[in-house]
Simulated scan of single mutants.
Amino acid sequence: MDELPDVAPRLRELRRRRGLTLEAAARRAGLSPAHLSRLETGNRQPSLPMLLALARIYGTTVAELLGEVPAERDAITRGGRMGPAEADGWTYRQAGGRGRAMQALRVRVAPGAQGDLVRVHPGEEWLYVLEGRLRLGLGDSVYELEPGDSAHFDSLTPHRIAALTQDGAELLFVHTLLQSPDPHAHPHA
């Protein structure tokens, strides 16, 4: 029987990109943390139902988990074509093409959802508040953002996002998988 392509590194990368611990992702997928760990290290091959569950949790497709890349990427994302994805009180809608180093999303943050979840991962993030008020914790600083406010930061800085308004908050959210260049780096001669 043919083995699946090596999905282990993608599973770990997608879980980390979503800011999920091994335990949290395993719980959502109905797996034990040890089982998910074995999938991420390549010691076990996932079944199709496991791939479907993990793809749903990570906001992607089984095709992407398997490393399939579409032949041509569409530069246009039509608003009505992308259905929402929900996870822990956040509703995501693609606002840009999939499978790129920069991901653009329109996000609805429900009040009280994930406000204590601290995220740290490689890359950059930019967000723009469309409606509602948002609390953004960056390292030791806390900011309250209103419609029209934006933030742009290196996502290795520990960060937390929470809605402050009763109806939640909506924002445009862009993140990259690449780190910002260090402005203080000095090349060696």
Rank of each mutant, 00 (worst) to 15 (best):
A71W: 04
E86W: 10
L31E: 13
G19H: 13
A71I: 02
A169G: 08
L156M: 13
D154W: 09
H121V: 05
R10A: 14
E64W: 04
L31W: 10
P181F: 09
D167P: 02
E125I: 01
L54V: 07
I57W: 00
L11C: 00
Q94M: 11
G19Y: 11
H121G: 00
V62L: 03
A163K: 04
M102N: 10
A185C: 01
P49M: 09
D88E: 15
Y143D: 06
V62I: 08
L39N: 09
A53V: 07
L20W: 09
L20N: 13
A169F: 02
Q103L: 09
H186Q: 14
L65H: 07
D88K: 11
A163L: 03
A34M: 14
L164K: 04
G89D: 06
E124D: 04
A29H: 07
A110C: 07
P183A: 03
D149W: 00
G89I: 04
G59I: 05
Q94H: 13
R56N: 15
Q166H: 12
R44K: 12
P122I: 05
I161F: 02
T176R: 12
E23K: 10
E3T: 14
A113M: 00
Q45S: 15
Q94F: 05
Q103T: 15
E146W: 07
E146R: 15
R16H: 08
